[in-house]
Nucleic acid binder design. Structure first.
Lengths: 202, 202
DNA sequence: GTCTATATGGCGATAGAC
DNA sequence: GTCTATCGCCATATAGAC
């Protein structure tokens, strides 16, 4: 087999990712995934026993990738304001490159809540650890203007939602693809300042 | 027919709303809608010719209801800061009462983008009018700290996203149903202040 | 491992009695 | 208007040849 051709399993996963991200579990068709991978439908069942299994593999990847971005809140030793700048930028850039992931994850929760809960709790960096660390950092820097959980939700809301709702916002704001990109670039600059203002007492 | 029983058409619409909101177009089953309405599957097709038609009716209602909430930005004559307080409260309360609507709308866009575009443009208060009005108000009050479009997106992001992602956030923050409600109540109080700080120059 | 062919079930939609 | 029965299709999944 030539090196420029991925293994069949990898190609299936890539194809499944493309289709599931765009159409979700209910909207996706095994036939479409097979076509996208350039193979036969029966081969999907040979590698992954069922549609559900294949979906799980794709969902786990997306979910892990999405939440890994919160780890920078805990891992580095840089000051909090720099972390906030970093996360806003990182999240927005990630969404720009993977526009379907947020809605895909949101729907995936409804499709299988227990699976999602398990993924969260079995993560190498569980949410509880991240929350605790942020609280400690804020106290160390004397920031009492806002609850640490509210802060985290604000960061995610302001970063993620505009790209979750991109198709709608483009229409509402009457922006071309390019103008929307510019609009998002402005947010990358301005969001951290807005957020930092909220954690400092006046 | 007794008065305590809604007309068949109304009952179908209510049932369709329940099922479509929760499962989306692809996940919904006509049989489930019929069961929920307490009638037969064939009757659905008698009143609404197809699943697509029934979905359209439900989607239009949800969409209109969702965007009506932005009208207070244009209609009343109260000052901008009061409008912001009003919208944050109104949006959050609405989401609490209709937890499935935001994700339902987000998915509906992917299901039929042209329909959504038409709904927006044919609205009695099209987005362009709202945008223009906000811009004028901000200039009148001498607020130049932020672009008016960015302001609107921030208000929506901070209000809507936490309830869009409620199942996920409950898990991440490890909150019970009641604790989550408290968490949202805090946001109702604090969000307007956070937003107002962003539109005033220091 | 990869294919063609087929089993099996469920879905939206319709026909037709009442 | 409302029902039962059924059509026709398409989806997931499997059998079995190569």
């Amino acid at each position: 087999m030539s090196e420029n051709q991925l293994s069949t399993e990898k190609r299936i996963l890539e194809a499944a990712k493309t289709v599931f991200h765009k159409k979700g579990f209910d909207g996706a068709r095994m036939q479409e995934i097979a076509d996208e991978a350039g193979i036969n439908k029966a081969l999907l069942h040979y590698y992954f026993r069922s549609k559900e299994n294949l979906f799980d593999a794709v969902f786990s990847d997306a979910f892990t990738e999405f939440f890994r971005r919160l780890f920078s809140l805990i891992s580095d030793t840089i000051p909090l304001d720099e972390k906030i700048r970093y996360i806003c930028n990182d999240y927005i850039t990630f969404m720009q490159q993977n526009p379907f992931i947020p809605v895909f994850i949101l729907n995936g929760i409804q499709h299988n809540p227990e699976k999602v809960a398990a993924l969260l709790q079995n993560s190498p960096n569980p949410p509880s650890a991240i929350l605790k660390q942020v609280k400690i950092m804020m106290e160390a820097e004397g920031l009492h203007g806002i609850d640490h959980r509210q802060l985290i939700i604000n960061i995610i809301s302001l970063s993620v939602f505009p790209l979750v709702a991109k198709p709608l916002l483009k229409n509402i704001l009457n922006l071309s693809e390019e103008e929307f990109s510019d609009f998002i670039e402005v947010r990358k600059r301005e969001l951290p300042e807005l957020i930092l203002r909220s954690i400092h007492k006046e």
